[in-house]
């Protein structure tokens, strides 16, 4: 009990628990891999871009909770979420409009087969799922930091 009294009296800063930090360190790469796995397997199993993106975003949330939001924000940097969303949107548009340029409808992947890409439909869907996943991951991360920043004084991420 003495420890808690000391902490209350001292009013010292809340220090993250090393146990939570170590667990997050260990679990994180596997969660990240799992998120990417779900993203890549959107076409033929449960999952897809949205789910995978959220799981990848979760990695950042875990870091933020275990190590402190400011620390994580410094590590991620302000540009990364924005860059992710931008890249994802560009990739999506590129695939969508690409099929239009080849004379088919928007996002009609089968037409890429004419360029000699095997399983054009499948890979097309994978690619778009991946783009969506990247967008979602970027948005989840960005929103998390934006909400956290809103509470302590309006500096946005």
């Amino acid at each position: 009990m003495s420890d808690s009294e000391r902490r209350v009296e001292r009013g010292g800063p809340y220090v993250g628990s090393p146990i939570i930090m170590a667990t997050v360190r260990v679990v994180m790469p596997f969660v990240f891999t799992f998120g990417l796995f779900v993203m890549f397997h959107g076409a033929d199993s449960s999952g897809g871009g949205f789910q995978g993106g959220v799981i990848v975003g979760t990695v950042v949330l875990m870091l933020g909770i275990a190590f402190g939001i400011d620390t994580t924000r410094e590590w991620i940097g302000p540009r990364l979420p924005v860059a992710l969303v931008g890249t994802g949107v560009l990739a999506f548009l590129f695939t969508g409009i690409g099929s239009v340029l080849l004379g088919a409808g928007f996002l009609e992947y089968a037409v890429y087969g004419e360029l000699g890409i095997p399983h054009a439909s499948k890979y097309g869907i994978e690619f778009v799922e991946l783009a969506i996943g990247v967008i979602v991951a970027g948005i989840v991360t960005g929103l998390f930091f934006a909400i956290a920043a809103g509470a302590n004084g309006g500096e946005s991420a």
Partner: peptide, 22 residues
């Protein structure tokens, strides 16, 4: 394995918060 890693950590996090809240 995942539950094995995370369940005790979650229990620790919750009781730590309880402890911290006095």
């Amino acid at each position: 394995l995942f539950m094995f890693l995370t369940n005790p950590t979650a229990a620790h996090a919750i009781t730590r918060a309880a402890h911290e809240l006095g």
